[in-house]
Amino acid sequence: MKKMEFVFLLIFFPVTLSVKHSLKFFLTASSGVKNFPDYLAVGLVDEVLILYWDSIRRKTEAKEDWSQKVLDNDPQLLELYTQECLLSQYKYTAKIEILKKQLNQTGDVHIFQLMFGCEWDDENGEKNGFVQYGYDGEDFIAFDLKTLTWIAPKPEAVITKHKRDRDRPNNERWKYFLTEHCPTLVKTYLDYGKSSLLRTELPSVSLLQKTPSSPVSCFATGFYPDRAEIFWRKDGEELHENVELGEILPNHDGSFQMSVDLNLSSVTPEDWRRYECVFHLSVVKDEIITKLDKAVIKSNCVPPSEFPAGPVIGGVGGLLLLLAVCITGVFIWRRRNNGFKPANCFRLIIH
Rank of each mutant, 00 (worst) to 15 (best):
S266L: 12
V316P: 01
D253K: 12
E237T: 05
V33C: 01
L23E: 00
N251G: 06
R166L: 10
T184M: 10
K154Q: 12
Q113P: 04
H240S: 06
I297A: 05
E64K: 13
Q83K: 13
W174Q: 00
R199M: 10
T106D: 11
D253V: 10
I327L: 14
K234W: 03
D54Q: 11
D54E: 07
V186F: 05
R334S: 13
A220G: 04
T28V: 13
Q209V: 04
V216F: 05
K63F: 03
I98G: 08
Y52G: 06
E138P: 06
K127Y: 02
I230Y: 02
R334I: 09
F307W: 12
E172C: 01
R274L: 00
R335F: 13
K187Q: 14
K20A: 14
A29H: 00
L320R: 04
Y135N: 06
E276R: 15
R57D: 13
E119W: 02
V109D: 11
D72H: 12
M115L: 07
K187H: 11
R274Q: 05
T16K: 02
R57Q: 13
V205K: 04
L87C: 07
Y192C: 02
R274M: 00
Y189R: 00
E172P: 04
D293Y: 03
A41S: 07
L9M: 10
C182N: 03
Q102F: 11
H21E: 06
V284R: 02
Y81V: 08
S22A: 03
E201L: 06
S266R: 15
C218R: 08
W232I: 12
S213A: 08
K69T: 12
F112K: 06
Y92H: 13
P212Q: 02
T211V: 13
N251T: 09
R274I: 00
L249Q: 05
V284F: 00
A142F: 05
A62H: 08
F116G: 02
F130N: 01
T160F: 10
N171S: 09
S214Q: 08
V205S: 05
N170L: 13
L202H: 09
E244H: 04
I332A: 07
V205L: 15
Q257P: 01
W120M: 08
L281E: 01
I327A: 11
T16W: 04
K34M: 14
V45H: 03
E306S: 11
F143W: 10
R168K: 13
K3P: 01
D144K: 10
R164E: 09
W333F: 09
T93E: 15
S22E: 06
